[in-house]
Amino acid sequence: MTKPIRAAKRMGDPGGLLGLFAIAYLLFLYIPVLFLPVFSFNDSIFVAFPLKGFTTKWYEQAFADDDMLRALTASLQVGAVASIVATILGLLGAKAVTRYQMPGQSLVTGTIMLPLFIPEIILGIALLILINALSIPLSLFSIAIGHIMLCTPFAMAVLTSRLDGFDKSLEEASMDLGETPWMTFWRVTFPLVLPGIVSSMLLSFIVSFDEFLLSFFLQGQQPTLPVFIWSQLRFPNKLPSVLALGAVILIVSCLLVVLAEWVRQLGTDERKVGVA
């Protein structure tokens, strides 16, 4: 007799077998990545079983390398510039598409999202041609230009989802109470969108920090960290310190992603108050 009720409650429920699959899938996603930190502590030049013993010398070696530190600084600089510029552009753009009705809007947003659908190699050579045509020397600046282009769609997507459903009467109320559009932005919009801005900056930073191919095409004398790592892969004796470096990068980016997601969730309940 209880069967119809259960059937209705569990409509579409896949049952336990799929749960096992899901766990296996997560293992497939995470285990390969976990080998980096595991072997970064292994006291052997070879990345192979059996593990030889615990050591932190690869970390010491990695962080004693001046070239690595210069590449790290370069990546941090490029990441900071790209994430700030992309977030400002994305914020203005997201504001425009969520607040106003414009003819040709979908064409414009489509163009902005296009880099997500184009193979990076194409973006790389196209930007190389542009940088060459503008006679900009290949440098960290040219890399930053490429990263801004790459990060903007991410920033725009994060901020559009944040601003979507933003009760526009909040801004109207502020203007109605005598604030200019500029002050309205600072007193109402900005505080409410702040979590989205932080999230967008973090995610753009990660995208830029991890980006290899564009940097590879647009690099000058000073490589970014991923380009530096790429150049180290040719030397087998550098492998353990690359593992150490990789492990640090992976863990830091995981933390940043979780932070970004947490910040993004943070404000969503609060925002709904205005709509309710």
């Binding site: 909040l170 409410l192 609060e270 108050v273």
Partner: peptide, 20 residues
């Protein structure tokens, strides 16, 4: 005259109470 310079004030349908 933009809204912020008008001698009118409004009570919104959603009330638009600033949530922050």
């Amino acid at each position: 005259i933009p809204s912020y310079k008008r001698p009118t004030n409004m009570v919104f349908q959603s009330y638009a109470i600033f949530p922050h």
